[in-house]
């Protein structure tokens, strides 16, 4: 597994570029085009990241983050989810940039290669901004009766948080 994850990226870079050349495409030009789009997206994201990190930083220095962790720790302990991730678990389904801000703070505070840091990373990588996704899709499709979608989607998030806590411990000891 370790071998796969360390060679996946370089192999992917080589394979896609070589494949594109074989198809008479211009991979370098495509990389530049895509890269420009990516940076444009980031540019629109910068103010969000700044504002969210301000709010997240306020929650931490005022002690709310720690208090929330203590408050929820009995529930979290039952499921084996680290209590330090309480704020992330609460905010992940609501806002993607807030979750990224909270997650970055947690990884910096507890160490990026610590169990908490890895749990945070796996949580961020394996869940989505549920409320946002649900509202965008149903809004576009003109659906007013959403039935069981939200409970099922939140259950999926919960499973993601749970397995993130388990895999971050199991795969790295």
């Amino acid at each position: 597994m370790g071998l796969i994850s360390s060679y996946l990226v370089p192999i992917l870079l080589f394979a896609t570029a070589a494949w594109a050349l074989g198809k008479k495409e211009d991979p370098y030009d495509l990389l530049l085009q895509g890269g420009r789009e990516g940076l444009q997206l980031l540019w629109t994201l910068v103010p969000t990241l700044v504002m969210m990190l301000i709010a997240v930083s306020m929650l931490r220095v005022s002690g709310v983050t720690a208090w929330l962790g203590e408050l929820l720790s009995p529930v979290f302990r039952v499921f084996g989810i680290p209590k330090e991730t309480a704020l992330l678990v609460l905010i992940r389904p609501i806002s993607g940039s807030a979750a990224l801000s909270v997650g970055t703070e947690l990884m910096a505070t507890y160490g990026v290669d610590s169990t908490v840091g890895r749990t945070v990373a796996v949580m961020l990588g394996s869940t989505e901004t549920t409320f946002y996704t649900v509202s965008v899709y149903f809004g576009a499709a003109g659906i007013s009766k959403t039935r069981f979608t939200l409970p099922a989607a939140l259950f999926a998030d919960f499973v993601g948080f749970l397995t993130a806590s388990i895999t971050a411990r199991l795969f790295f000891t």
């Binding site: 896609t16 495409e25 495509l30 990389l31 895509g34 890269g35 789009e37 990516g38 940076l39 997206l41």
Partner: peptide
């Protein structure tokens, strides 16, 4: 920047 580029390819 890198991954948006790779995505395009």
């Amino acid at each position: 920047c890198l991954w948006s580029g790779v995505g395009k390819v």
